[in-house]
Design a protein around this nucleic acid. Sequence first.
RNA 1: GGGAGAGUACCCAAGUGGCCAAAGGGGGCAGACUGUAAAUCUGUUGCUAGAUAGCUUCGGUGGUUCAAAUCCGCCCUCUCCCA
Length: 409
Amino acid sequence: MSNVYDTLVEREIIAQCTNEEKVREILENENVSFYIGFDPTADSLHIGHFVQIMVMVHMQRAGHRPIALVGGGTGKIGDPSGKTDMRKMLTDEELAHNVESIKSQLSRFLDFGEGKAIMVNNADWLLKLNYVEFLRDIGVHFSVNRMLAAECFKQRLEKGLNFIEFNYMLMQSYDFLKLYQDYECRFEFGGDDQWSNIIGGVELIRRVEGAEAFGVTFKLLTNSEGVKMGKTVKGAVWLDKEKTPPYELYQYLRNVDDADVIKCLKMLTFVPLEEIREMEKLEGSEINQAKVRLAYEVTKMVHGEEEAEKAKSAAESLFGGSKDSDSIPSTEIDESFLTDGSLPILDALLESGLIPSKAEGRRLIKQGGVYVNDEKVPNFDYAIPTEQLEGDGVLIRKGKKTYHRVYVN
RNA sequence: GGGAGAGUACCCAAGUGGCCAAAGGGGGCAGACUGUAAAUCUGUUGCUAGAUAGCUUCGGUGGUUCAAAUCCGCCCUCUCCCA
């Protein structure tokens, strides 16, 4: 039971593996290095990356050494795997910024102490490659025929794929070879969409070094309908506090579908499997208990216990009845919005970011979806008296579960 | 390089001179029902505006016209066929 591989299997994280028995055996008996790559497409990781992070932590706890690779080099190319469109090109500045942000995020989850884990940036070796040499040394080992048959290009072969993206696989494969050579890294892990790329590296190592390397992929965090999780109207659910406040992260997880709670608990938390199995028995509204646990555990890991507690109590007070929490999202309104001693409701909504435009606000109010301190806003002309805005301000609710506190100072 | 097509709102996709802020679907948002779930049903979905008004939108740009997403020129991007 102490074998990490078994743990990952039991938690239903593993999707594919190049050689199950062997990987299991090696992880059981040796302490190895393994790598997972992160592309710097944004300046923060999101909840989808959290599975990868969890795996690294599981592995590190089991005595293995994670190599977190940030794709400063591959980021200049853009991974076409499973995508329908070409990714937009990032400037060097954006890339550099993103690489740094991701690095610092990763270091919050892993122990990068002496020999415990390593962080590398593939820009360090990819950018200085010589084209002709690369083609001769690495390119020879790739069969275009086989690449074209690869699953990851399938969608793109219909819509169009250009040469730069076609090369992505070679870059990533080369990363693996390089890490094998420099760090004796024989394992590459990644999301299941990385399978083709990982296989590329495994084969490259075999061809160049005559050595056996291994690849393992994890199930992507998808909901019961197979749609990638972690997307909201506002975009991804980020691990960065500034981009997705702890309360929102908490609420996102608190609201996952019934059908997805158990899976998320297994994949995204360290809650012991026995406990999860107990929660699996919950039915009907009891399932909410499991959701609370999920939301709390993940928020705690991402933002710390204090933030998790705050998010939890905020949610409980908002949905429980007593609206007294101070950790719900809030906005200070500039006095210039006050007219005739009160704040027009549309301005309040707009300023707090609850609506993107006043037209949207009118629609909402017309449909009876806006409340101020639990009183339904009757019409667009409604204005909040300044007295109410002082101190803690008022609580605006949009729809059933979006709360926002607005105050003036 | 030659030839044939295509670029419409968040996405897919109709529309080929005025009735088009632009059908339909998806998604989103809100309402009902619920368990802060799912499914279902209803409404809504460019912006501004205290009514039937104005403004910006159909790859870009410049024209034709009383009037263009729709016609013409040039440009950009993409797909397909040929080289």
